[in-house]
């Protein structure tokens, strides 16, 4: 059995560490449950922020300072804000998705499956049958606080190629996002109706339907546009 896997009782560790871990664990679990059970997506996003902060504290506890900072900046600062932007943009914050479950057996089954997965992972973890491989392949963790220097060295030497590929991946993702959400270009002949459609419901995904003058002049098309768009 790997020595680190012996479950030392929480009270046998140093008191500040134990308290920090316990409080962070409660925050993480409470936030995660809040994400799942909140009816309003905005509340889910705020609960997600809570969980992310708890995980960041746990990162600091394990001498991963840089990752904790990145966690707060990227996750809580950028990703959740992106979620909130999309929620507000689409106006789905009043929707109730929990009621009227079309599959009544799905929820208990999901609960059972989740508990089975959790139980099997925990059983696997505490059974002691571990193959942990060689320790410290790329570089040792610095003993004192502060992992930034060691992490930077590893990222820019051993993991240089994945780092560069990551840059390409980000560019591709940005281009894909812009292409996906781009409103198709409106023709100038639309006039008032065209401007209206472009503003309120530039929500049309079909470029033919927007640029088609027959559909364009019809304000009634706004209500029906999401079913089948018949171009004429």
């Amino acid at each position: 059995m790997h020595p680190g896997l012996v479950p030392v009782p929480l009270l046998a560790t140093s008191l500040p560490d134990a308290i920090t871990f316990a409080v962070s664990a409660v925050i993480v679990i409470a936030g995660a449950i809040g994400v799942v059970v909140a009816r309003n997506p905005v509340h889910s996003a705020l609960m997600l922020v809570m969980t992310l902060f708890g995980v960041a504290v746990l990162f600091v506890e394990q001498r991963a300072d840089f990752l904790a900072a990145v966690q707060v900046i990227v996750y809580a600062g950028a990703i959740v804000v992106l979620f909130l932007f999309v929620i507000m943009l689409l106006g789905v914050d009043r929707r109730e998705a929990v009621s009227a479950d079309p599959l009544p057996w799905q929820r208990p089954l999901a609960l059972v499956l989740s508990f089975c997965a959790l139980g099997s992972v925990l059983a696997l973890g505490f059974s002691g049958a571990w193959s942990t491989g060689a320790a410290s392949v790329t570089g040792a963790l610095p003993h004192r606080a502060g992992d930034t220097a060691a992490l930077g060295k590893v990222v820019f030497t051993t993991y240089l190629l994945p780092f560069e590929v990551t840059a390409a991946l980000l560019v591709i993702a940005v281009v894909a996002a812009v292409l996906l959400v781009r409103v198709p270009q409106l023709r100038e002949q639309g006039g008032q109706a065209g401007a209206e459609r472009g503003g309120a419901a530039g929500l049309e995904g079909d470029p033919e339907a927007v640029s088609d003058p027959g559909v364009d002049g019809d304000p009634q098309g706004l209500g029906e546009r999401d079913r089948e768009v018949v171009p004429s």
């Binding site: 680190g4 896997l5 012996v6 479950p7 030392v8 929480l10 046998a12 560790t13 140093s14 560490d17 134990a18 871990f21 664990a25 993480v28 679990i29 995660a32 449950i33 994400v35 799942v36 969980t51 995980v55 746990l58 506890e61 394990q62 799905q106 089954l109 999901a110 609960l111 499956l113 989740s114 508990f115 997965a117 959790l118 992972v121 925990l122 973890g125 505490f126």
Partner: peptide, 24 residues
């Protein structure tokens, strides 16, 4: 001593289980 790694792994497993449940 630091908090044992088993506690962190258990917490991560619980977090993963909650996320999987919510996804389903």
């Amino acid at each position: 001593t630091d908090v044992s790694g088993a506690w962190y792994l258990s917490l991560a497993a619980a977090l993963f289980g909650i996320g999987a449940f919510g996804l389903l």
